[in-house]
Each structure stands twice: as structure tokens, then as C-alpha cells.
Simulated scan of single mutants.
Amino acid sequence: MKKLWWTVPVLAAGAEAVRRTRSAHRSDDRAGERWLTVTIYRPPEDVGSDEKLPAPLDEFADRIEVRVRKAPGDRGTELAARFKEPVPAASASLPARLAGKDPRQDLRRALRDTKALLEAGEVLLPDTPPTTRPTPGGKLIELFTRRSGGEGAM
């Protein structure tokens, strides 16, 4: 019994994390109004305005709201976007996200591409193939990379 002493705090922390995630998910995405934001290290004049969208976000022009404002501490510009209409719950589910059918993934990707274009002048992509011969670990990483579908930090 002494060997399992660590399970109680781990289970309690896990339950608290699930509770916080669920409550935050309900309050943020209740009406599909969660802002997705990137900080671009350029002045606001270079990024654009709320009416004039940068190239990767242009394909979402009629479906999203965009907010451009100065980042705190003179650290560039915050570019935020969100869908005008709520995202259907079915398309925001875990299976839809794993299948790459969540429209928020496309918006996240467009925000990251916009940041890359404005800061570096191009969207940098990883070299392919990363190894010369397929390995079991490489295949697993390739599967996760393909399935990530635009998730991740912006």
C-alpha cells in the first residue's frame, strides 16, 4: 500500500485539470467567440487594419472578425481572429480535430502563416523527408505530425 501513495495527488490533480478545462471550454466556446491570437513583431501599420486582412487570412474574410492592436510592452502587434458564427459542436469534437475537420485548425494555421509572412517574408516549412530511411519512431512522428492538423502554439 505504501508504494501507491502518489496515486492520490495525481488523481486529484488530473480531476482538477479536467474540471478547469471543461469549465473554460464551456465559457470560452459557448457561442464560438474564442479569439485566436498571435503576436507579430512588427508595428501595427505593417500588419494592417481590422478592415484590410493579411494574405493568409483573406480567404476567411467574410467569416471572421479580426482585431489588430498594439501588443503590451511595445512588443509588436497582436493580431486576433474569431469566427462570426458559432463553430458547430460536431466539428469541434476530438474526432473531428484528429481527422482535420475542425475549422478552427484552418484559422490557427492562417494566423501562423500570417505571422511567418510578416516577420520572415515567407512561410517556412520543415525539410521532407526528415530521415533517409523510414524507422518505426519516424513513422509514429509522421503520423502525429500529419494528424496534428494545425494544432499547437502560435
Rank of each mutant, 00 (worst) to 15 (best):
R42Y: 01
S23E: 11
S49G: 15
G138D: 07
L140A: 15
R112V: 11
A17H: 11
R26D: 14
E142Y: 03
R133C: 04
A110L: 04
G138M: 11
E16Y: 13
D113Y: 05
T131H: 15
W35C: 12
P134Y: 00
L53E: 13
P56R: 00
V66I: 00
M1W: 12
P130A: 12
S23L: 10
L57E: 08
D127A: 14
S148V: 00
A71P: 02
P54H: 02
G137C: 02
R75N: 01
H25G: 09
L79M: 05
D62T: 13
A80H: 05
A24K: 03
G149C: 08
R30M: 07
E45K: 10
R42F: 01
E151I: 06
R82Q: 06
W6M: 06
P56Y: 03
E51H: 14
G150K: 04
E16C: 09
T7C: 12
A31N: 13
P86Y: 03
G76S: 03
E142N: 14
V38M: 08
E142R: 14
G149I: 01
L118N: 05
S91H: 02
E122L: 15
R19C: 07
A120H: 12
K3P: 01
D46N: 07
A55K: 15
G32F: 08
L118Y: 14
R22G: 10
D102C: 03
E151V: 02
R34E: 15
L143C: 09
R112H: 06
E151N: 10
P72G: 09
G32S: 08
A71D: 00
L53V: 09
R97F: 09
E151D: 14
A15S: 06
A71N: 04
P136I: 01
Y41V: 10
L79R: 07
R147T: 10
L107K: 03
M154H: 12
G73Q: 10
S93E: 01
P103E: 05
A24V: 01
R42W: 00
A12E: 02
K84A: 10
D106C: 06
R97T: 14
I141M: 09
D62E: 15
T77C: 09
E142D: 15
E122V: 14
H25L: 02
D58H: 11
R22I: 11
V8I: 12
E59G: 05
F144P: 04
A31Q: 13
E16F: 14
P136E: 03
E33P: 04
D29I: 01
G14L: 02
R146W: 07
S93W: 07
K3H: 09
P129V: 07
R133E: 12
A120Q: 14
L107P: 02
T21Y: 07
L57G: 11
S27D: 11
G152T: 00
